[in-house]
Simulated scan of single mutants.
Amino acid sequence: MADIAGLAASAAGGGIFGLIGSVIGRAAGLVERRQEQAQERARWEHESRLMDLQMQAKRQASEDDLRLADVAGGWQGLNASLAAEASIGESYRWVSAVRGLTRPCLTLLLWVITGLVFLGSGAAARSEIVETATFAATAATLWWFGDRGPRRDPH
């Protein structure tokens, strides 16, 4: 009987240790799956941030391309304007006099308008309005008088 009791105790002890081993194995499997899920979540978050940064970089590049196209278009317009100005030949003296007075009169008028806008606008709107008017007046002044020196005959 002692043999049967020893055999039963051995079977029960082996069963208990087997169950404990299974529980530990299952617990380790759950911990591994949670770690894998956490790593997968971290990878997806990293990829999501990376995609956001790539989209932001593409958006910035598109904005830069638009600004560059705008500036390039402005320079092309300036070149066309210079070419048109150069193609105007001599005319009657009064036509040349009126053309000669147009730019100074318009420039003075632009600066007067800029001053009146500055003095007449409220503090809230003053900044944008004055910046725009100053830009226009400065651009006109420099464009109209910037390249007006006497021209020498190349021959």
Rank of each mutant, 00 (worst) to 15 (best):
A2Q: 11
A5R: 13
G6I: 12
A8H: 08
G15M: 10
G15S: 08
I16D: 00
I16C: 05
F17M: 14
L19P: 01
L19G: 15
L19H: 03
S22A: 15
V23I: 15
G25V: 04
G25A: 13
A27S: 14
G29L: 13
G29E: 13
L30P: 00
E36H: 04
E36S: 06
E36A: 14
A38E: 10
Q39R: 13
Q39P: 00
E40W: 03
R43K: 12
W44K: 13
W44L: 15
E45T: 09
H46D: 11
H46S: 12
M51H: 11
M51T: 10
Q56P: 01
K58R: 11
Q60N: 06
S62E: 15
S62F: 08
D64T: 05
D65S: 07
D65G: 06
L68W: 03
D70N: 08
G74L: 10
W75F: 10
N79C: 10
A86H: 03
S87M: 13
S91C: 06
R93W: 15
W94K: 05
V95C: 03
V95Y: 09
W111L: 05
V112G: 02
L119I: 09
S121C: 06
A125E: 12
S127E: 05
S127P: 00
S127Y: 04
S127W: 09
V130C: 09
V130H: 02
V130N: 01
V130A: 05
A133F: 14
A136W: 01
T141G: 04
W143H: 13
W144S: 14
R148L: 12
G149L: 13
G149C: 07
P150I: 04
R151C: 04
D153Q: 06
H155F: 08
